[in-house]
């Protein structure tokens, strides 16, 4: 199977337990930090946009801002891929509830915030980014499928790409169906060539999944995986906290991605 090689220049993370990638490192080293605030600061958004933005956008912008700051690259130059299994579930819950009761009262702002590419839209507006941007999903394989989309863009166009994968907690009757209990978001800035800012090199290979399931680090609570369809990103994030190693991610039903990670010397 063909392989893709990309380099990681920045990492962002936000969950109920972890406020950034450094907090994951500390957690893995047996020094868990205090849980972050309920609402991500999303400092990358201008104050006006931050006030208007729904929860899904704040979450995505928080980790995007972290990863881009770590990379030292200009956000305006980065193509971006925003993955999310369910989009903004609070808005979907609001829309379906309103449509069932008083459809003519639907809020126009909540409607335009309901599009799956709302985080991509807010992010490109906030950062003045005219590069290609996209919004994708693949149910519980959204991180792996999003990583494939982003890595393919890096390799095909030889340009740096921001990947964000995020999901809000479920809400209302829909929340019982999606089973999402926790917010989770992560981001990677990926480049084609290594440079001084490179944190790690990733070799990605697609494989029929066969019987080998996606990996999950023993050090991490299984409940973290259950809580969010974006949390299957954690094996790769935990890998990035180590010196080298492998992990396996789901990309689609029956298709896996084997990731081999090495740090620069």
């Amino acid at each position: 199977m063909s392989a893709l090689r990309v380099h990681v220049a920045g990492i962002g993370l936000w969950s109920a337990q972890l406020a950034d990638f450094a907090a994951l490192r500390e957690w893995l080293a047996g020094r868990p930090a205090a849980a972050p605030a309920a609402k991500p600061p999303a400092a990358a958004l201008p104050p006006n946009e931050r006030r208007r933005a729904p929860e899904s956008v704040l979450l995505a912008a928080e980790v995007a801002g972290q990863a881009v700051a770590m990379s030292g690259l200009a956000a305006s130059e980065l193509a971006c891929v925003f993955a999310s299994s369910h989009g903004d579930q609070a808005i979907t819950d609001y829309m379906c509830a309103t449509l069932a009761q008083a459809p003519a009262e639907l809020s126009p702002t909540r409607f335009h915030n309901s599009v799956h590419n709302a985080p991509a839209g807010y992010w490109t507006i906030a950062t003045g980014c005219h590069a290609p941007s996209t919004a994708v999903c693949a149910h519980r394989a959204s991180f792996g499928a999003g990583l494939l989309e982003a890595a393919a863009l890096v390799a095909a166009d030889r340009r740096p790409v921001l990947l964000v994968c995020s999901d809000t907690p479920g809400s209302g009757p829909l929340g019982r169906i999606t089973g999402c209990t926790d917010a989770f978001a992560c981001a990677l800035v990926l480049t084609a060539q290594p440079d001084a800012a490179t944190l790690a090199r990733l070799d990605l290979a697609l494989q029929p999944a066969g019987d080998a399931a996606a990996s999950w680090p023993e050090a991490l609570p299984a409940a973290w995986r259950q809580g969010s369809p974006s949390a299957p990103a954690l094996p790769l994030l935990a890998l990035l906290a180590q010196a080298s190693g492998h992990c396996r991610l789901d990309v689609a039903d029956g298709l896996a991605m084997d990731v081999t990670m090495e740090k620069p010397a």
């Binding site: 693949a138 149910h139 989309e149 689609a252 039903d253």
Partner: peptide, 30 residues
């Protein structure tokens, strides 16, 4: 039926209907 209430419903259905096992992605940019 949870998969029907996710934005990947269309591609999930089509993958099953066509018996495809390659990369499978939904793009949702309005």
């Amino acid at each position: 039926r949870p998969p029907v209430h996710a934005p990947h419903s269309l591609a999930g259905f089509a993958a099953a209907a066509l018996g495809l096992e390659g990369p499978c992605l939904t793009v949702s940019t309005a």
